[in-house]
């Protein structure tokens, strides 16, 4: 089967690099599947899991924002933070989730901190789900 090169890059260095058959990412306008030979494209990503299908298996990478860049021979995901499923610190994610939930309860709506807590919660939940999928 045809494959396409994928790299997930963050400011702290490359996180994932491999040749895969299909990349599935959640962009801001919806789920997007990328096969080899896709037209060059750029799309911003939501906080979510990127799925990478490879030889009948699926790798998961938790991505916090950023965007995906597609070229004919390569897909690059540029994110401010990203972790492969088996590298997620689940304890930390659970703690972050609890902290964010607590903050959401305390704060009144339409606050900047509220929005930040909400994003933190999304990131934590994303990490937890990705890590569970891996197990």
């Amino acid at each position: 089967m045809k494959t396409i090169k994928v790299s997930v890059v963050t400011p702290d260095g490359p996180v994932y690099e491999s040749d895969v058959e299909m990349v599935i990412a959640r962009t801001q306008s919806g789920e997007l599947g990328i096969l080899p030979g896709h037209i060059p494209m750029v799309a911003p990503l939501q906080i979510g899991a990127v799925r990478l299908n490879k030889e009948g298996k699926t790798d998961f990478v938790a991505v916090s924002g950023g965007f995906v860049e597609v070229r004919s021979e390569q897909v690059t995901i540029l994110a401010q933070s990203a972790e492969e499923a088996d590298e997620i610190d689940i304890e930390r994610a659970i703690r972050a989730k609890e902290r964010a939930e607590q903050r959401l309860h305390e704060q009144k709506r339409e606050n900047i901190d509220f929005k930040r807590a909400e994003l933190a919660l999304q990131r934590a939940v994303n990490r937890i789900t990705v890590s569970e999928k891996h197990l």
Binding site: Q28, V70, Q80
Partner: peptide
């Protein structure tokens, strides 16, 4: 490279430029 934009170039710049400046 010339790209397709999803949803639009403006929306992409909205996300991309702050991220670029921060980096």
């Amino acid at each position: 490279t010339s790209y397709e934009f999803e949803p639009s170039a403006e929306d992409i710049l909205e996300v991309l430029l702050p991220q670029y400046a921060e980096s």
